[in-house]
Design a binder for these strands. Sequence first.
DNA 1: CGTCTATTTGAATGTACTCAAAAGCGGTGG
DNA 2: CCACCGCTTTTGAGTACATTCAAATAGACG
Lengths: 195, 195
Amino acid sequence: MDNFQPLLDYINRVIELTEEEEQKLCSLISYRKLLKGQYFLQQGDVCKSNGFVVSGCTKTFYVGDDGQEHVIMFSVEDWWTSDMGSFISQKPADFNVQCLENTSLIQFSYENQEKMLLEIPKLERFFRLIIERALVSSQKRIVRNLSMGAKDRYLHFRNVYPKVEQRIPQYLIASYLGITKEFLSKIKGQLILEQ
Amino acid sequence: MDNFQPLLDYINRVIELTEEEEQKLCSLISYRKLLKGQYFLQQGDVCKSNGFVVSGCTKTFYVGDDGQEHVIMFSVEDWWTSDMGSFISQKPADFNVQCLENTSLIQFSYENQEKMLLEIPKLERFFRLIIERALVSSQKRIVRNLSMGAKDRYLHFRNVYPKVEQRIPQYLIASYLGITKEFLSKIKGQLILEQ
DNA sequence: CGTCTATTTGAATGTACTCAAAAGCGGTGG
DNA sequence: CCACCGCTTTTGAGTACATTCAAATAGACG
């Protein structure tokens, strides 16, 4: 399937798959298109598949007891999207995943992912490596949240994901950074005055 | 080696190793004792090994530009300790790992870990699974930091790690929670008044 | 042009921090 | 056994960073 090429490229940057393995893999995944606003996963449902974003963008968010939304992550091209906690345990999800744009993604269902790991053991390594990297990023984010003020967290975000910033509404970025939309607006105002 | 039993038990709770594999594994790891206050890893050094804590306790922390310490995690019995970012890239570490008590741990050196993954492919799965769990915890911690006030974060910590709380000085717990020691003290005072 | 959503602005408030000082708590030695 | 030391915790006053709420402004789209 032509549609799966971005994923195969992504995987082959980490490990090397044979033709055969690629075919096997492609037989176990599926392609899906979602419209802006559609949910890939809803809080309370079991996360039955991991998504690899081919185009578009999703936000993963948590709705607290007070009804407030907290953005956990954005997923753009070549990123994964899911509620990993729900996926690995097959228990109800804590998070929602919703499309911020029309989004195409490749789905790994729980059953098929298990199957492909048994049939293509190399993928164990692949997933270990990418999850290691994700864990490192996650830890670094915790450190930033502990050690930086809101302004520096915003500047960091802007430097690291300049393209992501441009396609996502500011109030969602504020939520991702752990601040209110009003305060982010004030920070931006201040940054403009500074130079 | 008798000393490695806690690790073998831990691994066998996740996957199943044969006698042979256990022996192979044990030939590639080493046992190490550190005293209270000693460093397992220092910021700037390359993290050459992952540690599995058999007894004792370590803190992993980051020293910011302003000189302030930020505790990333505590590792007690049956937990891992390292700077994963440094370990997987073999680049200088951002974090320090220091013993809060006399600590015994099992070391996985970078080279030997690679070797064992090649010789015991099952371990790829093992590490994938435990890292997945670590990533889920890390994400949940981010959510707590975004969605809860300091008091609720403390209560959560106290509920989830009651034993850990008792053996670690309060000012380090404050740092882990992302608040000052003074403020944690005030929260505790307030909690006592409340009931 | 009007409507809807997103962003900005301002004033009042709250949560958590800083700094300084005092109190508590082990351990050690006289 | 008590006095002293170093380290941790507590307390308080003043401050800073970030939030809330309300209202005004700006942008996007039909």
